[in-house]
Design a protein around this nucleic acid. Structure first.
Lengths: 355, 355
DNA sequence: TCGTTTTAGTAAATCGTTTTAGTAGCTATG
DNA sequence: CATAGCTACTAAAACGATTTACTAAAACGA
């Protein structure tokens, strides 16, 4: 995206001060007109067509001069629309949520919508209460990101990476069959047969389906995955450490493997650390396959081969879907599930098996 | 933080459905009482002490049964408080903002506050309009993160990593003198004298002060920084690529250096890629020093030596400061600037100079 | 000239709360 | 036995917009 450079320093006098808030009533008094007239003109309602241009201009200039800004609360209360949605994420710092959020925002900002963010931190109580609190705050809909649905509000809901089928909830999910095919296919073609897997944490929505589809794709090629070669991530830290620990556990079993299929890039990075500490070089001795394609993946050392998940787009799609649910002009319900496609990004962390 | 594991699957019948919203008026009609009484009881106002317990219980149970939730808009409009603040960030996906945001949220959530997020994407028009729009939405205060202030609303403002002194704006900033001392001191002690620097993008608040303090700390040790060994980051991508490109430019000049002090960890990662592509090993041939200590830093290969900036805490402090500005019980104004201290984290990307 | 339409507005209701300023009826007290 | 004080409530105003249902005057048409 091309950008013009900003002026590096802003002169203080360029900063605009703000007058005190003025209400429509005050503005009307100042103009000796009724609030009705002002409201009609300022929102250019159809019935304002009988108001002469001269009066309209008076209103507009006075509004600008006195810095009139409608009170969103009052307006929202009256028109029963807040142009606000709620977004529930596990935690903000994990990269995953931030990416999705970024997509959500990009779709929302054009339409004058804002969003309230809330993190549930995998806590049961928050999973119950957060949707209620958001409803209380009159959000028009909710986007949940990698979050189990405990409470279905009477509002449109879109769940990113949700896999439960719930009435009124649209799931935006990766095509996991395809993702597993890409990953296992790539490893198989490189000659790998002893595949270890880092399975996701129990609380992660994708854990089960990821594991199931990987297993299936492997079985389809007559390469069963040795149960001893599956290690589950534990703990909700967003750092690579969880992958490091899970890999250590894997190595401790002594069962040999030629490749490690990680649950995500972050855990793949931790895994590589664990492998190299044991004297295993990546990808010479062991290949490592990531998932997600976060920014760091391309620049890691070695650059990660990974299954790209279009998180930004998923957020964008989620927001657009929610908006279309909210606009009463759209009649057709969105499908219960919207699939997005993964991409295999081959870099340096996987290579052909030697023996 | 200890956590009990979640049940991995939730039985559908455990999901709570939501009844339609009911208003206070409806609830009052149902109980054959006035809305006044209900409001007094539900908010247990002092004047509700004359209401007998029996009536109170009737009200509470009916509210629970009919699932009454007060409309936050209406309440906010009446009491003139929204318990909502606005947060303006450059972009969500860069890790930096997400970390700060996480801290903000942690301080806010206990106090029943929520926040609206807006990204300015370094665009001049958004820098002007976003604060206004947030004011329109009746936020009670604004936290700006690494964001120049173009428009000072008539509200408490806290600027994380802001360096302009503006009336009514509190800056939460790193002690950059100390940070530069830690960094340059570390490099100096390792014998480095030819120091290259990756300077931040023009739009980043910390760029100038970081550069100035580093220069000063170097000069204090009689090691001037060769102007040809300073390369500025360009472009607003949050990926390591900007560091990669800036380092390539540095290498193209042919001027030798023994260490590279990067603007942040992300650009340090890009720098290492560029160095290794040229056949320079880190830290054997060139040391690299990062800044921030993001999650990836500890697990990068080589693990990054870096100056840790407590971003989570800075967000938390910013939010707490804003809240104290908002509570009229606190009389004393917070200081114009709040300093936080950096820490030097020594890992594998720096080593003693050989010659 | 009379009726209709258009022009240029306004009064009042409304959204869903909170809060101020009461009001009846009962009880205690000197 | 008057009155002060308490008990158990309520009517109505307010927050700041939007919207419905008007009106009075002017212009138009036949």
């Amino acid at each position: 995206m091309p950008r013009r450079p900003n002026s590096p320093s802003v002169r203080p006098e360029k900063r605009q001060p703000d007058g005190l808030a003025i209400s429509l009533k005050q503005l009307a008094a100042h103009l000796e007109l009724s609030t009705t007239t002002l409201s009609l003109v300022l929102n250019n309602a159809p019935s304002a067509k009988s108001i002469p241009k001269e009066t309209k201009d008076r209103i507009f200039t006075a509004a600008k001069e006195l810095n009139y800004r409608p009170n969103y609360l009052a307006r929202s209360l009256r028109v029963q629309r807040t142009n606000t949605i709620g977004v529930i994420v596990p935690e903000l710092s994990d990269g995953y949520s931030a990416m999705v959020l970024n997509g959500v925002e990009s779709a929302l900002s054009g339409d004058g919508f804002f969003y309230l963010t809330a993190s549930h931190l995998h806590r049961d109580d928050l999973l119950e209460t957060l949707p209620r609190v958001l409803v209380e705050r009159q959000v028009e809909g909710i986007i949940a990101v990698d979050t189990p649905i405990r409470f279905v509000p009477n509002l449109p809901v879109v769940n990113v990476s949700g896999h439960e089928e719930i009435d009124g909830v649209t799931n935006v999910v990766l095509n996991h069959q395809h993702a597993a095919e890409l990953g296992i296919g790539h490893l198989f073609n490189l000659g790998h047969r002893k595949i270890a897997v880092l399975k996701g944490q129990a609380f992660s929505s994708d854990t089960d389906i990821r594991w199931d589809t990987i297993n299936e794709a492997a079985r389809r090629r007559n390469v069963g995955i040795d149960p001893r070669l599956c290690s589950q991530l534990e703990g909700d830290s967003p750092s690579p450490e969880v992958g490091y620990l899970a890999t250590k556990k894997l190595l401790a079993t002594g069962v040999k493997f030629t490749v490690l299929f990680a649950f995500n890039d972050i855990s793949a990075i931790g895994a590589i650390r664990a492998l190299e500490e044991t004297g295993l070089r990546v990808p010479v001795d062991v290949s490592v396959l990531g998932f997600d394609d976060v920014y760091a993946a391309a620049f890691y050392n070695p650059a990660l081969t990974t299954i790209r998940q279009p998180l930004f787009e998923m957020g964008k799609i989620a927001a657009k879907t929610l908006l279309s649910k909210l606009s009463e002009t759209v009649e057709t319900d969105p499908p219960a599930t919207i699939n997005v496609e993964p991409t295999l990004i081959v870099r340096q962390s996987t290579s052909r098996v030697l023996d």
